[in-house]
């Protein structure tokens, strides 16, 4: 699968046990595996082809391990990433603190990486609203402050998962379109020049 070209490098970051792998699993295979928790070892790579407005975009998703052990390594996984999905567990405030850490990392080392904040396990809140570990508005304010998109997903029910990745791909396509436009202008200028010289020689 990965022999193909990857358009967008997406990296999943966040504290262990927030459900990064489950999120990828739901998105890529549309399933939710029930069973004992399996922590990711190192990082896993998976490529997914999707279509945005008739264009195909290949997301290369790096699902990283949340364990502190791999923290020093993490830069190799997020280097050059165009999008980072920073996950936190909606029911665990400490995981949000950890998300903030990753945001700071990204701001320091990967300016061009767009950040998508993702609160996971939203199905748990549906069972019991009191389980919410951190106020929604606080998170919203933080997301605005760092210019990040905010999603609340459930890998168990599938809620907002596709929307999240769709948004990542759309943003990429938009950015590309914008870049082509600006690059296009540059090309236009030079073309004008060459046309000028061309016409000059011709006449």
């Amino acid at each position: 699968m990965s022999g193909q070209r990857v358009d967008v490098k997406v990296v999943m970051l966040g504290k262990e046990y927030v459900g990064k792998t489950s999120l990828v699993e739901r998105y890529v295979h549309n399933r939710f595996l029930v069973g004992p928790y399996q922590n990711t070892i190192g990082a896993a790579f998976v490529a997914k082809v999707m279509s945005v407005g008739g264009r195909t975009v290949t997301l290369g998703i790096w699902d990283t391990a949340g364990s502190e052990r791999y923290e020093a390594m993490s830069r190799i996984y997020y280097r050059g990433a165009r999008a980072a999905i920073v996950c936190y567990d909606l029911t665990d405030s400490s995981s949000f603190q950890r998300a903030k850490f990753w945001v700071t990392e990204l701001q320091n080392f990967e300016e061009n990486c767009r950040i998508y904040l993702c609160g996971t396990k939203s199905d748990l809140l549906e069972e019991d609203r009191k389980k919410r570990g951190i106020d929604f508005h606080d998170v919203q304010d933080y997301a605005d402050e760092i210019k990040a998109e905010l999603f609340e997903t459930s890998s168990k029910t599938g809620q907002s998962v596709d929307e999240l990745f769709q948004k990542v791909a759309e943003d990429y396509v938009q950015l590309m379109a914008f870049q082509v436009m600006t690059e296009g202008e540059g090309v236009d200028l030079s073309q004008k020049n060459s046309t000028y010289f061309y016409s000059c020689c011709h006449h």
């Binding site: 890529v28 990711t40 896993a44 998976v46």
Partner: peptide, 18 residues
């Protein structure tokens, strides 16, 4: 042992320091 202890390698491609 590393490989047999985790089912997380069954999907995608893992890249891990060891």
């Amino acid at each position: 042992n590393l490989i047999s202890s985790s089912s997380s390698f069954r999907e995608g491609e893992a890249w891990t320091p060891i």
